[in-house]
Structure formats: C-alpha cells, structure tokens
Nucleic acid binder design. Structure first.
Lengths: 212, 212
DNA sequence: TCTTTTTTGAGAGTCACTACCAATTGATGT
DNA sequence: ACATCAATTGGTAGTGACTCTCAAAAAAGA
C-alpha cells in the first residue's frame, strides 16, 4: 500500500523510524500554526484574523509564522497534492488518452482523500475559504496553474510535444478550470454529494466539446 | 457605426456634446494616473514602483489614486470589455451554439481592439504585466471569472438553464481558460502573429473534446 | 561538556490600503 | 457677479502583511 497520506502527518511515517527532535518540532510547529489559523478563521473570519493573533494562539512569534508560510494564504493552501498527482500520472499506461489518464488520477487521489474523514473535513474547510476569500481564491488559481504546468510537462512528453505547446496548455487549463468549477459547485450547492461524480460530469462536458 | 472605443476616450464622444468641466477633469486625472503608472512600471518594474511615486508623477495625492483605482492592480486591469461583450453576445442569433456565439463575439471585439494601434499597444503592455506579475495575474483571473459569470448568465437564459448550472459554469470557465492561454502564448511566444488565430486554435481544441 | 549549526524572537522599516477631516473647486440659482 | 451647495481633493493617522537583520536559545555532534 502506497503512502497516500498527502495531508499533515498523522501517522509517524514508518519508513523513517525516528526523525531527529528538530524535525519533529518543525512538523509540530507547522501543524500548530495551521490548526490555530483554521480555527480562528472559522471563528472570526479570514480578514478579521491578523497573523499576529494566529501566532499568539499557536504560541510562536509572528516571524516564525512567516518562516513557515511565505504568505497568510499559504497557511490555508498547501500544494501537497502536486507530487502525488504527478507520480500517479506517470504511472498511467503509455498510449492512454490524456483526458482519460487525468480522470483516473483524479479518481485515485480524491477517493483516498475523501474517504479519510480528517482529510475530507480539511478539504471542505479549505474549499469554503477558496469560495469566500478573494485572496485565497487568487492564490488557489495560481497554485492550480502551477500544478497544471507540472502535469502538462508529463502529458507533453507522452504525446510527443513540448510542455509549452498551445495544445498542452489549453488542455491542462481547461481541465483544471473544470475541476475548480466542480469543487466550487460541490462546496456551495451539493456538499453531501459525491465530489467525484461532479468532477466526472464536468470532465464529460469537456469531452463533448462544450456542446451544452 | 457603433461606439467601439472601449478604452480611454480618445474621441470626445460626439453623442454628449460637452460634458461639464468636472467630468472632463476626472477623465483627465484618471488617464494621467494610468499613463504615469504604465510608464513607471515599464521603467522600474511593477513591484519597484510604489503607489506614492505614481501619484507624485501624475501630480495627484496618493489618496486620489486610491479613489480612482481601488487597488494598485486595478490601475492596469480595467474591465471595460465586459459590457461590450455582453451586448454583442445578446445580439447573436437565438439558436446558435454557445461556443460559436462566443467565438463570433471574440472576433468582433478583438478585431476592433487589435486594429487600433493605441488599443493594441495597451493590450500588449497589459498582458505582459499579466504574464510577469503574480498579483496582476491573480486579479486578471478574478476579472475573467467575473466576466464569465456575466456571459454565463446570458448563455444560461438562451439554453434554458440557470446561471449557476454546472454545465454553464464549466463552459465559461473552460472558454476563458482557453482565451487566457491563447493570450499568454501570444505575448510570450508569438507577439507578431494574429491573436485571433491563436484564440481560434485554442477554441478548436475545446470543440474537439480536448482530444490532443 | 564544549563547539557548531539551526531555529527562534524581537525590532525597525516598507508598502498597500482605509477612515476621516479640512480645504479647494466646480455647479447652480439669484 | 455673488453666495450657496455639492463634489473633489489633499493630508494625517492608522492597520496589517510582509521583509531584513541580529542576537538569544536550542538542538546536533564531537
């Protein structure tokens, strides 16, 4: 069974029997900051929660917060999914159509995330913030297009193109736009439905050439 | 001939023979700020140009700059295209496929913009900033999704759906993602080519169901 | 235990942006 | 031309997200 724990390390990671005290403290601090932040955001709202208060709540100095997270938005948005997705995509069979490959990767990724209650709860919280806070939404877009470039590179090499070919870029941009809309639809309209069903619906719209 | 001058008012607008002095000064101030900003951005870079310096260069107070433009990014990004696009889209024939309608609207809009040297130059400058400055790119995305919602509403009413239907949202998101990629490809790879050709290429990828 | 390296906290500074108030300036009626 | 009213402007004092720097504290390693 592969390591699917893309979120915060809940299990101590059996592969590295015992990291040094320094490493453990770093992980602990990072987690403390994020937990304080999420709780305070839920309680008082994102804009009404200064970084200083998060720092105080997590018992670290403001400087430390910015050492762990380059911006306030990054406390919410982690790009821990990127490498997992890239690995899974590379593992898909050679001749498979790119859109099918991406769909399968998304299924693999999201089914594990959504099945873990803790990860699912964190995903919901994060996407609610993406929906509500412009600054976070903006950052999420940026993060998406970063991930898109990563996956685009893989798809390019599989279809004999360069990563910056227009076809590849439009492909990834459209796919991520569809995923984003599916996710937004999920958190604001149908939080109890299966996100994967919504993603499939969205991707199928693309497959049909946007003939709505 | 309709009023296609979506950018700054170069022609004094014959329909309103003579606006008050107040109006004229406002337009003048707005333009002065934008011109100072664009020049300073090109000279020293966006991040290295504080709003105070723009204000000083345009001979207004910093407060005035923020009165005219809610954020520094908004000095660069105007959403003057929105209403024009909406009007043109509403003018398309009833039964036309949405993707075709949008394509025609884009042709109408961009052919007028690209043919006016001043507007074309401004478009290039703006898109270069979109490419280079994360803050502006983020804002451009936001602006795009705003426009997308506007057009989505029109498309929804034409296809007998609600504006927040998943199909409509995925449609507009994918289309604007494609336009954005085409524009980015244009400014960074082929600034001498015809932008409309690139947009058509991008839209055709969507039409083909992303079968790249 | 002693030394080296990493991590932390604290202080000062920059910059985007907001709220507010007083002074200026254009519009309007007589 | 003049007085009055409304809109526009400039200045001042904040807030909050970040950056830089440096000395104190804490962990790693010998």
């Amino acid at each position: 069974m592969p390591d699917n724990d893309v979120m915060s390390p809940r299990t101590p990671d059996a592969t590295a029997p015992r990291a040094g005290l320094r490493e453990r403290k770093k992980i602990q601090t990072r987690l403390a900051i994020r937990e304080s932040a999420f709780r305070l955001f839920a309680e008082h709202g994102y804009d009404a929660t200064p970084v200083d208060r998060i720092a105080a709540d997590a018992d670290v100095s403001p400087s430390t917060v910015f050492r762990y997270f380059p911006t306030k938005e990054d406390i919410v948005l982690t790009d821990e999914y990127d490498d997992v997705m890239a690995d899974k995509l590379r593992a898909r069979p050679e001749g498979e159509a790119p859109l099918v490959s991406v769909r399968m990767v998304l299924h693999e990724l999201f089914s594990t995330v959504l099945n873990d209650p803790a990860q699912r709860a964190e995903l919901v919280l994060r996407e609610q913030l993406v929906r509500d806070v412009p600054a976070i939404r903006a950052r999420a877009h940026e993060s998406f297009s970063l991930t898109g470039r990563l996956l685009g590179g893989i798809i390019a090499s599989r279809t004999g193109r360069t990563a910056d070919a227009l076809e590849v870029r439009v492909f990834t941009a459209a796919v991520f736009a569809a995923i984003h809309e599916a996710t937004m639809f999920w958190v604001e309209k149908a939080p109890d439905e299966d996100l994967l069903v919504l993603i499939d619906r969205s991707l199928r719209i693309l497959t049909r050439g946007l003939a709505i």
